[in-house]
Amino acid sequence: PIEDLFTSLNRHIQRSEFTQAVKVANQVLSVAPGDEDAIRCKVVALIKADKIEEALSAIQSSQKVSFDFSFYKAYCLYRQNKLDEALEVLEKQDKTQPSMLLESQILYRLGKMDACVDICRNLQKAKIDSLEINLVAGLISAGRASE
């Protein structure tokens, strides 16, 4: 039954066995095509397994799912260094902490250091671990080390 598959999926996720998790997510999808939890698990497991191209394909083939994969799609494009495309995807979605983090990383790679720093400063209230590292990197690269 599908509950057993989800139990197995959960176990693989807990153990960071991401390739196995993808396999079990596919088993769920073979009996329940379009299962949103299974598709989400599959996409995240592919990203965590560093299979970025496959993650993008999975996102592409899940158009009917109501979950908004924009952030994941933008992240995959960022990993492929398709920075302008990634920004385009982000601009179409509401701003969230993750999307702002990603935007700041994309801007950094694009050499837009002031914009990168602005976003990190906006996120400072959110107390995200290690955010200062990226803020300082942006400041130094912007020639604003004194700040």
Binding site: E36, C41, I47, F71, L102, A137
Partner: peptide, 21 residues
């Protein structure tokens, strides 16, 4: 240039599937 951490990666989480088990 200084290293920038991939903090966006840490924000990518599995959905809760407790209620599916």
């Amino acid at each position: 240039n200084p290293i920038v951490l991939d903090l966006a990666y840490n924000a990518i989480d599995f959905p809760s599937i407790e209620n599916r088990m």
